[in-house]
């Protein structure tokens, strides 16, 4: 799994590619935690390069959302397709997160 981080329009963007599984999910957790620690409150996970996510990855999204909520922040998700979208849907996570087709739409949306 590769995670690259950038900032755009006041939001921290995490572009995630490859596989988020039991082995690699802790890396994504560390990246999210470090951003929140450094004061970021509005994260966007761009997942168009992600082909696989297991429940280990879902846990990190849930934990990150729970951390950000009392800080009046959020993690938006965009670019999901294939198995990743299916896993979010089967888990009921689609309704827990603000989900957008593309990064542009995620950035343009009002809070």
């Amino acid at each position: 799994m590769d995670v690259s981080i950038s900032t755009q329009e006041g939001r921290a963007i995490l572009r995630v590619a490859g596989r988020m599984d039991a082995t690699t999910a802790p890396q994504f957790e560390r990246e999210c935690a470090a951003l929140i620690e450094s004061g970021e409150r509005h994260l966007v996970a761009e997942l168009s390069g992600l082909e696989y996510i297991s429940s280990a990855g879902l846990r990190i999204f849930l934990a990150t959302a729970k951390k950000l909520k009392p800080l009046e922040g959020e993690i938006r998700i965009c670019g999901m397709s294939g198995l990743v979208r299916e896993v979010f849907s089967l888990s009921g996570f689609i309704s827990l997160f603000a989900i957008y087709p593309s990064l542009d739409e995620a950035l343009a949306a009002r809070p």
Binding site: L58, R59, L62, A63, K66, L90, S91, G92, L96
Partner: peptide
């Protein structure tokens, strides 16, 4: 899992 719950109630 209770897939209809909100963020506060969902457990992993």
């Amino acid at each position: 899992p209770r897939t209809g719950d909100g963020i506060d109630d969902r457990e992993p």
